[in-house]
Design a protein around this nucleic acid. Sequence first.
DNA 1: TATGAATGAGTTTTCATTCAT
DNA 2: AATGAATGAAAACTCATTCAT
Lengths: 236, 236, 236, 236
Amino acid sequence: MLESRAFTLKTLDDMGRPAASSNSARAKIDARRKYDPEETKRNILEVATAEFSAMGLAGARVDSIAERTNTTKRMLYYYFGSKEGLYEAVLDKVYGDIRTLEQDLHVSELEPIEGMRRLVEFTFDYHDRHRDFVRLVTIENIHGAKYLEQLKTFRSRNASVIATIEDLLTRGVASGQFRDDVDPIDLHLMISSLCFHRVSNRSTFGTAFGRDPSHPRLRAKHREMIVDAVLRFLKK
Amino acid sequence: MLESRAFTLKTLDDMGRPAASSNSARAKIDARRKYDPEETKRNILEVATAEFSAMGLAGARVDSIAERTNTTKRMLYYYFGSKEGLYEAVLDKVYGDIRTLEQDLHVSELEPIEGMRRLVEFTFDYHDRHRDFVRLVTIENIHGAKYLEQLKTFRSRNASVIATIEDLLTRGVASGQFRDDVDPIDLHLMISSLCFHRVSNRSTFGTAFGRDPSHPRLRAKHREMIVDAVLRFLKK
Amino acid sequence: MLESRAFTLKTLDDMGRPAASSNSARAKIDARRKYDPEETKRNILEVATAEFSAMGLAGARVDSIAERTNTTKRMLYYYFGSKEGLYEAVLDKVYGDIRTLEQDLHVSELEPIEGMRRLVEFTFDYHDRHRDFVRLVTIENIHGAKYLEQLKTFRSRNASVIATIEDLLTRGVASGQFRDDVDPIDLHLMISSLCFHRVSNRSTFGTAFGRDPSHPRLRAKHREMIVDAVLRFLKK
Amino acid sequence: MLESRAFTLKTLDDMGRPAASSNSARAKIDARRKYDPEETKRNILEVATAEFSAMGLAGARVDSIAERTNTTKRMLYYYFGSKEGLYEAVLDKVYGDIRTLEQDLHVSELEPIEGMRRLVEFTFDYHDRHRDFVRLVTIENIHGAKYLEQLKTFRSRNASVIATIEDLLTRGVASGQFRDDVDPIDLHLMISSLCFHRVSNRSTFGTAFGRDPSHPRLRAKHREMIVDAVLRFLKK
DNA sequence: TATGAATGAGTTTTCATTCAT
DNA sequence: AATGAATGAAAACTCATTCAT
């Protein structure tokens, strides 16, 4: 699942408008059945994710999305109602993806330190690989999260990450490995900060210091560094 | 200079379009000298900072900026050439402010741990107070920093922060207080991450977890937490 | 026939788009016999009458009609060919209803004054109760009656009203009760004006003078007033 | 004033989209000064009145209005904000015109019967000549007067007609010429009905009875008939 | 230096109608 | 006889920028 998403990421030119993806392979598949609403919606969402992620909400062009789709602009309105409706659908999908994966981590089966390491590594890897997710979250923050707030299912989906962290903290404190004054939400924020920022701000950082912080060569180093920082912060 | 900026910050509604500031008082002042190019430019920049910060580059409206200005749209083009030219001028000003301040920190006079604490606290405080700076950097990252790259003076101005950190690290390693395997640029990224993200992503974070991470009540706690995390990471 | 129309009237919100009627009950009834072309056509016409009456020809939406129907948009085209075809069918039905009723008045059996009173009262009541008829006639006038002209059966159906009036006038003149210089078509126009306008223009009239001229409380008063005005006009 | 409006009326093809008026004369006048906002607004309003009156709100085309204007579509939005805003401005103007004229009638100087005759004749003539006013009122009724309600100045402007009628009635009752049980608003409605309907419904009436009720040949006859009907209704 | 009016090219959205099943 | 998906053409509206004064 994660892999297929990663594939999507590769097809978009990260700066500027995303390149037209090679639809030849899919076109053949589509030829088999022309009326496939699920596939139509999926295809629109995929293209829209790339466009919104690359251009922002205001900067994205409905025409541009439609062009790179297997269908017409009209269908975009047919299924998503408006540019903003489509943007919300993209947000919903993209947040759904990470939360689904988070729930599949099963760190409760690991001992505290190992579990925490695993959680941080997962968070690091996810952000490192899903630049479009990072961009969309960034964009949503420009809008004061007002579209996210509209997604009814959203809020409830976030409880599990915090529950996971809380479980790790509790067990770590019980075993004497972790300090006992750390709030799980604060810790989640800290982990997010370290994993998110190096991706979200890599452009300005690169320009300022001549070094792209999300460059593959730095990847392993940063991953270790962040795990290290979190564990040092937690240890007694 | 910083003070006048801080004042600006208070007058803008942080979410959504900034409120129309009461121009009546200022209008009177302007009446004294009718043509004051510097004041006109300053006024345009101030309003533009608020608009770009609130709406993004694509989302900002030239009309909206001009309306809240003491002058007309034509002047905006007269002085800044285009919407993008104005945006660049805003970026330039906002980045200039923080670097100027960083150079005035004089942490070289403090012993390493204290100096590092002071640097982190300064970074924390600056981001905490200058939300429009944070927003503009975020916006610039959406555009792959392409406008920042155009600012000739920009790159050279960043060397000093790294020099400051390097000095602290070297002295800390020499005194046996700090570990010796930390890269100054990586450390700067870590500090930035922790200070920037809680401000830049407070909206989505707030929506997801029902807690605004940049709320004043959490301020002191986070400040300590971040200093603590950085120092624990550095200590031998 | 009239009853089924009256029912229709009650189910539509007279101002603005008609409320979505509760189709659940009807759906069950329909379930008994799956394909009933006559019922399908009747149902489409009923919904279309409400929509065209509420929104006008240009303002009506085919999608909106189809939605509130028991069937789909395709059927609407299957039976009526086009939006305009459907509009014509609605017109035809609605004009047919009033002419049919007018023929059942049998005022020829009454003495002239009583017969005239009865005719005016009937006209008054019909317009008062059939707001959608009034609206559709209004709408048709916006279009210069071009759709009405297409209805072949229409023109012939109108002769009888005039014949009825002519009979009353002739008898009234003969008995010395009515003046002898009144043209039956002019009189019909006068009666129509008085009965139609208070319904057709109630919105602007209400806004201008703060009084809805078709309000139930004014109903009886206006009815008498109009009968009175017509009879005074006719009397020698 | 009335004459200049009457001229406007002649330039529009009453059925279907109004013909492009001959702008050659006016174009020359405009050549003198190109920047004339009042003239631009006036010109847009004039063309829009014809279009809305001929096609209705939903049926009118912004492009079509702009085309027949001396300026571009953009200016239409510049001055009136939206299609609906333009429609409201047209309504405002058109209602303003008749109310202004009504106030200039000075029937208070005439004895009651003569004054009432003059008022009815004015109302008759105005509707007879201003078909676009009649159409616009009709159209506004299709929309439940919701745009008229938005015009703040509107309601207050209507008091004077009622005051005029009330004055005539009071004086007529005092002199023993009029009955004493007639409400001025009801009477206004009656007069309006008789004068409005023969214009507003002339198309359907013409189709039904083969006679255009607003045909010039019938004009004088109807005028007298209506005055007669009103006076007979009022006389003791 | 300053201004309000004007604009063209582009952008989102709508809608009656038809297609494939 | 019936259906949900699909569509092209057209409609409303927006916006950065320039012109005439």
